[in-house]
C-alpha cells in the first residue's frame, strides 16, 4: 500500500473513532469536544479528496461555527443541570441497535461499491461551459451560475431558520438582545485577540470572496470568517450583539437574498431566470457575492447567538 493511501486509511479510521467517541462517550462536554475534532478531521479528508472549497466550508462551518454553537448549548444546559447521564439502555437493546446500524452502513457501502464506474458525472459539462459562467473556479460557477437556484434557496433557508430561532423568544424579550453581555479581563488573552484578530479576519474575508471567482473560496466561506470575527468581538466584550428588533440588522439579513432575487428576476427579463451573458455575469456575480457575504455573516453570527435573553 502506498504511503498516501495509508494516510487516507488512518485518517478515515480516526474520523470514525472521533465520531464514535462523540456519540458513545460518557461525558457530554467531552463528546462535544470530540465532535469538533471530528469536524477538523473531516475537513482534512476533503483536502485529500481535492475538494478545497468543501474543506474550507467544513473547517469554518462544520467544525468552527457548529462547535461554538454546541459549546454554547452545553454551557446553557449545564447551568440548568440538564447534562446529567441517566442509566443507559440494556445491553441487549444496545446490541440490537449496533446490529441494525452496522447493517445500514454495510448496505450503503455495498451500494456505493456497486455503482457503475464509467459515469463521468457532470464534471465535463461544467468544464465545457465554465467560460460562459463569468468566473473560472468551477465550484463558484456551479454555486452562483449553473445551480444558482440552489444557492438562492439556501440564502432564503438561512434567513428563515433565523426567523424560526427568533420565534422562540419569550414575549417580554421580543426585540431584545441575544446572549449575555460578555466581559473579558483587560490585557488578557481574549481581550488581546479580540483586538488583534478582527482586522486580519476582515482582510481574509474580503480576500476569500474575491479569490472565490478563480480559486477556492467564496461567499459562504468568507461569511463564516466574518461571522467568527463578529463572535470574537462579542466574546471579548469589544462589541455587544445587536437587538433583533433593529431595522438595520433586519435589512442586513434580507439584503443578500433580496438582491440575489432581483438579479434573478433581471435575468428573467433578458430571457432566463438567474441567467446572464458571460461578459456581465462575472462582474455581477462578484458584486452579489459581496452583498451575500455580509448578509450571510450576520445571519450565521445571529444563528449562533440564539434567542434574545435581555432588553437593553
Amino acid at each position: 500500500m502506498n504511503p498516501a493511501l495509508l494516510f487516507d486509511v488512518a485518517l478515515a479510521a480516526l474520523a470514525v473513532v472521533a465520531a464514535l467517541s462523540a456519540v458513545a462517550g460518557r461525558d457530554l462536554f467531552a463528546s462535544v469536544a470530540f465532535y469538533i475534532v471530528y469536524g477538523i478531521l473531516i475537513a482534512l479528508a476533503w483536502m485529500r479528496l481535492g475538494a478545497v472549497d468543501v474543506a474550507l466550508a467544513e473547517a469554518a462551518i462544520g467544525a468552527g461555527l457548529t462547535g461554538v454553537l454546541l459549546i454554547g448549548a452545553w454551557s446553557q444546559l449545564h447551568r440548568k443541570g440538564a447534562t446529567e447521564t441517566p442509566p443507559g439502555p440494556s445491553s441487549a437493546a444496545r446490541l440490537l441497535a449496533a446490529g441494525a446500524s452496522a447493517s445500514v452502513a454495510v448496505l450503503v457501502a455495498v451500494i456505493f461499491v456497486g455503482l457503475p464506474a464509467d459515469g463521468a458525472g457532470l464534471a465535463p459539462a461544467v468544464r465545457e461551459n465554465v467560460a460562459e459562467s463569468g468566473v473560472s473556479n468551477p465550484v463558484t460557477a456551479v454555486l452562483l451560475n449553473f445551480r444558482a437556484y440552489d444557492t438562492l434557496m439556501e440564502t432564503i433557508v438561512l434567513a428563515v431558520a433565523l426567523a424560526a430561532v427568533w420565534s422562540l423568544t419569550r414575549d417580554e424579550l421580543w426585540g431584545g438582545i441575544p446572549g449575555l453581555r460578555q466581559h473579558a479581563r483587560d490585557g488578557g488573552v481574549l481581550a488581546t485577540f479580540g483586538r488583534l484578530l478582527p482586522p486580519l479576519g476582515l482582510l481574509v474575508g474580503v480576500y476569500l470572496v474575491w479569490a472565490g471567482s478563480s480559486m477556492p473560496g467564496g461567499a459562504f466561506q468568507a461569511a463564516t470568517v466574518l461571522a467568527a470575527v463578529w463572535l470574537l468581538l462579542v466574546m471579548s466584550g469589544a462589541m455587544d450583539e445587536p437587538a433583533i428588533g433593529s431595522t438595520a440588522i433586519r435589512l442586513t439579513i434580507v439584503a443578500g437574498p433580496a438582491l440575489f432575487l432581483a438579479y434573478g428576476t433581471g435575468g428573467a427579463f433578458l430571457g432566463t431566470f438567474l441567467g446572464f451573458p458571460a461578459d456581465v455575469a462575472g462582474m455581477l456575480i462578484v458584486a452579489i457575492e459581496y452583498v451575500l457575504t455580509v448578509s450571510i455573516a450576520a445571519t450565521l453570527a445571529l444563528l449562533v447567538a440564539g434567542v434574545p435573553r435581555r432588553q437593553e
Binding site: 472549497d53 468543501v54 457548529t66 458525472g121 439556501e154 433557508v157
Partner: peptide, 28 residues
C-alpha cells in the same frame, strides 16, 4: 472532484448549520 457535488455539499453544510442552530434553540 466533480464541482457539482462539491457545490451541493457546501450548500448542505450551511443548511445543516442552520438546522443545528434551530434544534439547539428548541432544546434550550
Amino acid at each position: 472532484p466533480d464541482p457539482v457535488p462539491q457545490a451541493v455539499i457546501i450548500t448542505g453544510i450551511v443548511v445543516a448549520l442552520s438546522l443545528t442552530a434551530l434544534a439547539v434553540a428548541l432544546l434550550v
